[in-house]
Simulated assay, not measured.
Amino acid sequence: MMKLSVFGKDTAHSIEVALDCRHYIGDRPCKFNRECRECPEYSPQGTRILIIKTGALGDVLRTTILLGGIKRKYPDSHLTWITAPGAVSLVPKSIVDRVWPYSVEVIARLSVEEFDLVLSLDKEPEVAALSMIARSKDKRGMGVDGCGAVYPLNKEMSYYYRLGLDNDLKFHHNRRTYPDLLAEAVNIPYDPAVDDYHLDLGEADREKARCLFLGTGLSPGQKVLGINTGAGGVFVNKDWTLLGYVALLQELEKRGITVLLLGGDRESDRISELHRRFEGPFIKDVGTGHSLGVFASLVSMCHVVLTGDTLGMHVALSVGARVVSLFGSTQPTEIEMFGRGEKIITPIECAPCYKRSCDIHPSCMEMIRPETVLASILRQWDMPSAKNLRTIGKSL
């Protein structure tokens, strides 16, 4: 135990503090609210590991796949994760000891604290530079040199680094998934049979989602198809077309499949338009603009989720829903479905491209046919709940 004895004017006010305990806070009592001396909850930090991963939101969530391998290799490790303020709720506090939103204050902490291992997982220079500030003899992932250029810190990172520079390799030759690639890049064990997403759902978020769900007239446990109607706006053609959704919903209504429309503020107009076209009781709306925790809790109440390659897809996989995912301009190979769903890949020859604009018609998403999507949904609809197949936690 790393002890610090602090003495007052007399021995009656002296205390003994365990500075290396993972529960120690410093400015107030820890959650166990007892003195450190002979505390049964004393837990030394062990291997101190810093994870730097700030965005995008879906990438933060799928990076949690590394946590199982980290805990197997370093079972008594103390984990600190630096992420974007908007991604804090995606980092599981049940596993990660400290979640720091990226800020000036965090940079100050990095200039003082020491870590046994730093995993720097962002390629953006301003984020990768944090790995150069962090004090550690073992740094893996991405760094920044004196000229501001991003480069790999360890030899295992070379293939993952090359994928970002070689579109031919990334688009046409690589057949490995993101978890496999990332684990190799930072030399962390990965086993697809046991390693999975990790996402904590708070009880308050679950309860609000349950109220929203029941408020639409749905019954507890009712079998529902969730449709995540949008996708991120960075790359073009990540979300399906309005006409595609309309044709699909017509067929779902005939089959009596209840639909729950999901999305954020960006999708509010599209959801309103779908409601205008379909006024029947089979289509439900829980609104937009919810927190990530409430959104994830709503997704967890769906049996199947239809989504593009976006945060909603990663959330659906993390909560154990069955997933039908549509791929247009982005690379489907890197997505691990864990046996819980299907990928529908555009037949267009120029995909994937990761372009930010496109004037090709019909576009890659327009070439995904409603009947193809319907067939995939029906296959997943008839399969048992994927929640029984989830492997989250087995590796911890």
Rank of each mutant, 00 (worst) to 15 (best):
K3Y: 12
K3W: 14
L4A: 13
F7P: 09
F7L: 14
T11R: 14
S14Q: 13
S14R: 14
E16I: 06
V17I: 15
L19P: 04
L19V: 00
H23M: 05
H23I: 06
I25T: 14
G26E: 04
E35W: 11
Y42P: 02
G46Q: 03
G46L: 00
G46I: 00
I51L: 14
I52K: 06
I52P: 02
V60S: 02
L61P: 03
T64D: 03
G69Y: 04
L79M: 11
W81T: 07
V88N: 09
K93I: 14
I95K: 04
Y102L: 15
Y102D: 13
S103R: 05
E105N: 07
A108G: 11
E114Y: 04
L117C: 12
V118R: 07
L121D: 07
E126C: 02
S131Y: 05
I133W: 07
K137E: 15
V144K: 03
C147K: 12
G148K: 03
V150Y: 01
S158N: 11
L169R: 00
K170Q: 06
E184P: 01
E184Q: 13
P192C: 11
A193D: 06
A193S: 08
H198C: 08
H198Q: 08
H198A: 10
L199Y: 05
D200R: 07
G202P: 06
E203G: 04
R206C: 14
E207W: 06
K208W: 00
C211Y: 07
L212Q: 03
F213S: 12
L214F: 07
G221H: 11
Q222T: 08
K223P: 05
G226E: 06
N228S: 15
G230P: 00
G233S: 13
W240Q: 01
T241P: 08
Y245L: 12
Q250H: 06
G256P: 02
T258W: 06
T258K: 15
L261K: 10
L262K: 07
R270S: 10
E273P: 08
L274N: 12
R277L: 15
F282E: 08
I283Y: 00
V286P: 04
G287D: 09
G289K: 14
H290N: 13
L298Q: 03
G308Q: 01
G308K: 00
D309V: 05
G312C: 01
S318D: 08
G320H: 10
A321P: 12
R322Q: 11
V323Q: 11
V324M: 10
S325E: 01
S325K: 00
L326P: 03
F327M: 03
P332V: 05
E336Q: 12
K343T: 04
T346I: 03
C350N: 07
C350G: 07
A351K: 05
Y354H: 15
I360V: 12
H361E: 12
S363M: 07
S363V: 11
C364D: 02
M365I: 03
P370T: 09
T372V: 13
T372D: 14
A375F: 11
A375N: 14
W381P: 04
M383T: 11
S385F: 11
S385Q: 10
K387Q: 15
K387P: 10
R390E: 12
T391P: 03
